[in-house]
Simulated scan of single mutants.
Amino acid sequence: MIYHHNRFVFKKTTTAPQREEALASLRNQGASIDAVVRYVVGKDVGGEFEYGAVFVLKDLDGYWEYLTAPSHAHTDRIGLPLLESFVSYDTTDEDDPDIAQKIAALHTRRYTADPALRRLVAALPSYTGSSAPR
């Protein structure tokens, strides 16, 4: 299993309706993407981030399905411009010693195929983690 984590802070200029739309879109990802085994979207507790989301994926094929789903693209388009800081990372129980490189390759493939997404990500004031462009 792969647990894909997102932690983020909205810009101070983000309105309450924009925030709720972005959070609802994240929840829709969890509900609408078949590869998502479980998910949670909510307040981030115990750190410098406001909100977080975790999507549990069975394997790398499921990770790719998650990354390329239309509902995920929608969240990127409406949510990324609202963020001040964003970090993503993955936790896995996979024994594959190359799992980190394989996950990074999926993200690289996605960014290569979607220049508009790459521009959105490049505009983020702060973005680190496993899905940050290399």
Rank of each mutant, 00 (worst) to 15 (best):
Ala31Asn: 13
Lys102His: 02
Lys43Glu: 15
Tyr39Phe: 14
Arg109Tyr: 11
Ile33Cys: 07
Ala31Cys: 05
Gly47Lys: 07
Gln18Pro: 08
Ser71Pro: 00
Val45Gly: 00
Thr14Tyr: 06
Gln101Phe: 05
Ala53His: 03
Glu84Ala: 15
Ile103Asp: 14
Val9Glu: 12
Phe86Met: 11
Val56Glu: 03
Asn6Thr: 09
Glu48Gln: 09
Arg134Glu: 15
Leu80Ser: 10
Arg109Val: 00
Phe86Trp: 14
His72Asp: 07
Ser130Ala: 13
Arg110Phe: 02
Val41Leu: 12
His74Asp: 01
His74Cys: 00
Glu21Gln: 13
Asp98Ser: 02
Leu57Tyr: 04
Tyr51Phe: 11
Tyr3Met: 14
Asp93Cys: 01
Ser88His: 05
Leu57Glu: 01
Tyr51Val: 05
Thr92Glu: 13
Pro97Ser: 09
Gln18Tyr: 05
Gly47Tyr: 02
Pro70His: 13
Ala100Asn: 07
Ser126Thr: 13
Tyr111Lys: 08
Leu26Ile: 11
Phe86Arg: 09
Thr75Met: 06
Thr92Cys: 14
Val56Lys: 03
Lys11Trp: 09
Leu80Pro: 11
Lys12Asp: 15
Val54His: 05
Ser71Lys: 07
Asn6Ile: 04
Val56His: 03
Arg134Asp: 08
Leu117Val: 11
Thr15Asn: 01
Arg134His: 08
Asn6Ser: 06
Val40Lys: 05
Val87Thr: 06
Tyr3Phe: 14
Asp34Trp: 03
Leu67Ser: 10
Tyr63Thr: 02
Thr108Ile: 02
Val87Ile: 02
Thr13Gly: 06
Ala132Lys: 13
Ala123Arg: 14
Thr108Cys: 01
Leu124Lys: 09
Leu80Val: 04
Gly129Arg: 01
Ser130Pro: 06
Arg118Phe: 05
Leu124Tyr: 10
Ser85Pro: 02
Thr128Ser: 07
Ser130Asp: 11
Ile99Asp: 01
Val87Met: 01
Ile103Trp: 05
Ser126Asn: 06
Thr15Met: 11
Ser88Tyr: 04
Val41His: 08
Arg38Asp: 15
Leu60Pro: 01
Tyr39Gln: 00
Ala16Thr: 12
Thr108Pro: 02
Glu20Gly: 11
